[in-house]
Simulated assay, not measured.
Amino acid sequence: MLNADFIAVTQVLIYVGGILVLIIFGVMLTTKVFDVPVKTETLHVGPAIVVTGAIMGTLFGVILKTKWFDILNVQWDGTTKKIGERLMTDFLLPFEVASVVLLVALLGAVIIARRERVKS
């Protein structure tokens, strides 16, 4: 609606990627934890079902009441092509430098988190 399709998709991808990296680092850095008892309690199942049902009901209500045809008739140019052209022409060097910095950070995290080999 605001002609910001690229920003919307980029924001979703960055947040999903950030959560994924957080989970991967959490797994990599906690591999030395053994014998941790995991307790499961079923006391919260009832309230969880009620809250989940309320959220799903709200979402379905919003989906059914939205005028989808009005949204689909909006015409816009889109910003993806313009941003892509600028990124691959004017800002190619900063883009490549950022990718190398991220690669080095990822390799550093792997080296820090890896297990030491036991010599036998």
Rank of each mutant, 00 (worst) to 15 (best):
I83M: 08
F60K: 06
L2E: 11
V62E: 05
T30R: 02
I23H: 08
V38G: 04
M56Q: 12
F91H: 07
D35H: 14
G17F: 05
V50K: 10
V9Q: 04
R117A: 13
T31G: 15
Q11L: 02
F34P: 00
A54L: 15
A105N: 01
H44R: 06
I14P: 00
V118P: 00
I24R: 01
I24W: 01
P37I: 11
L29S: 07
I111C: 02
L20Q: 09
K67N: 14
F91Y: 14
M88N: 15
N73E: 15
I55W: 02
V110K: 00
G61R: 02
L2V: 07
G57P: 01
V45Y: 13
T42K: 10
L2Y: 12
V74R: 04
K119Q: 08
L92A: 14
W76F: 10
W76H: 14
V16L: 14
R86A: 11
V74M: 07
K81N: 07
V100T: 04
G108K: 01
Q11R: 05
R117L: 09
A8S: 10
T40Y: 13
M1C: 10
I71S: 02
V50E: 15
E85S: 09
D77F: 07
E85R: 03
L92F: 13
S120P: 05
A8N: 13
L93G: 03
P94R: 04
G84T: 03
M1R: 08
S120Q: 03
V21S: 03
G61E: 06
V50P: 00
K119F: 09
F25V: 12
A109S: 14
T66L: 11
E85T: 11
Q75A: 05
L106G: 07
P37R: 09
G78T: 07
E96W: 11
I23D: 11
L64Y: 09
V110T: 02
T52A: 02
I63T: 09
N3P: 00
L64Q: 08
T66K: 06
W68G: 01
R86Q: 08
W76G: 03
L102W: 01
D90F: 04
A48M: 13
I63N: 05
E41T: 06
G84P: 00
A48Q: 10
I14A: 14
L2D: 09
G53P: 00
M1S: 14
D90A: 08
V27T: 08
L64D: 10
N3T: 12
D35P: 00
G108D: 02
A98V: 12
W68N: 06
R117H: 07
L106H: 01
F60C: 10
Y15P: 00
A109F: 13
K32E: 15
